[in-house]
Simulated assay, not measured.
Amino acid sequence: MSRSEIPFEPNSGKKPKNNKIQGRSPVIKSSQKPEQPAAANSIPPEVNRRLVRRAALFCGIPTSLGFLTFIASYIIVVKKWADLPNSAVVLVSMLFLGIGVLGLSYGALSASWDENREGHWWGWQEFKQNFGYLREAWKAQRAEKLSSQKPD
């Protein structure tokens, strides 16, 4: 089964060769500039903006609620509207902050990684597709690691 590649995925998964000649590193003269990464290997600006925007939304709202929990509970206790146990305040705040951490990951994975496609607002289809890319990359990395450990 052939998998579709991510639009900005490098063509070869191999590591670059070491430029050492007879145990010495190459000397870079001051007139030479180190090689810049190819534009094809970088994330396109539109995809990057989409990732940041979605991560900020899915992470920012719950994280803000986590911090507002402390402020709201302080006001409730000072105004003597209710007597809140400290552990309840901390647990509710930790819940919101934990959702914020998950939202950061979900925001990045639920954005469309295709430069020409915006994707759905909720992003569930994009999340499934992008998480599939990650699983395949993890499997390939594990297989490469196992094959490099095998004695010849």
Rank of each mutant, 00 (worst) to 15 (best):
A108V: 08
L57N: 02
V77A: 09
G23E: 09
E35G: 07
F8G: 01
E126S: 12
P26A: 08
P7R: 02
S42T: 13
A111N: 02
P44S: 13
V92S: 04
P44Q: 11
A88D: 14
P62A: 06
T69D: 07
A38R: 03
Q125N: 12
S64K: 08
F8I: 01
F70W: 14
S4P: 02
K20P: 04
H120Y: 06
S42H: 11
L51A: 07
V101A: 12
W124L: 13
L84M: 03
W113R: 03
S105N: 13
G98C: 01
D114L: 04
I21M: 05
S42Q: 15
A55F: 03
D83H: 06
E115H: 04
N11W: 11
E115D: 14
L84C: 00
S42C: 14
G60Y: 10
G103D: 01
A108N: 12
N11M: 15
L51H: 05
E115F: 03
S25Y: 14
V78E: 14
L102E: 00
Q125F: 08
G107I: 01
R54V: 02
L95T: 06
V89N: 11
A39I: 11
P34R: 14
S64A: 15
N41R: 12
R49H: 14
W113Y: 08
K33S: 14
Q36F: 10
R49M: 15
H120R: 05
V89L: 06
S12E: 08
G100M: 01
E118L: 10
V101S: 07
R54M: 06
V52W: 04
L95V: 05
S93Q: 02
